[in-house]
Amino acid sequence: MNLKILKFTLNGEPIEITVSPDDMLVDVLRDKLELTGTKKGCGKGECGACTVIINGEAVNSCLVPAMKTMGANVETIEGIGSPEKFHPVQEAFMDLGAIQCGFCTPGMIMSAKALLDKTTSPTSKEIKRSLSGNICRCTGYVKIEEAVQAAAEKMREKQ
């Protein structure tokens, strides 16, 4: 096997790691970098639990070969907030109960963050479109949409 040196920016820090050409990004994040906030659900790009942001766009990390991120800027749930200082989307999910078992939550939050990085005045349609690839099997999506709207409002206030 021809192992490769992969260099990219992860949550603002430069990373250098040895990967196999067939390693998927989700597995490198979880198994090699121990960033288990990114969840692996279906592994087929259908559930969105593994959503991360690459160069500003939300993508399924189960369908991204790790090598594809060479030189890219990758953001995961671990990089957007901390227990000391949550991201407005994380705060809104907690405040408004937009969460049950939590398995889909990191993916939901990353999809929402990618949207709110582009606009802090999203329409309901834009929120729904941005979250359309994130499946939640516990609950409905109403509270989740409300939380994204609330986060957008908070972000607008701070601007």
Partner: peptide
Amino acid sequence: VGSHQVRNS
């Protein structure tokens, strides 16, 4: 096509 994430890739 697919989902928002799929369409981004």
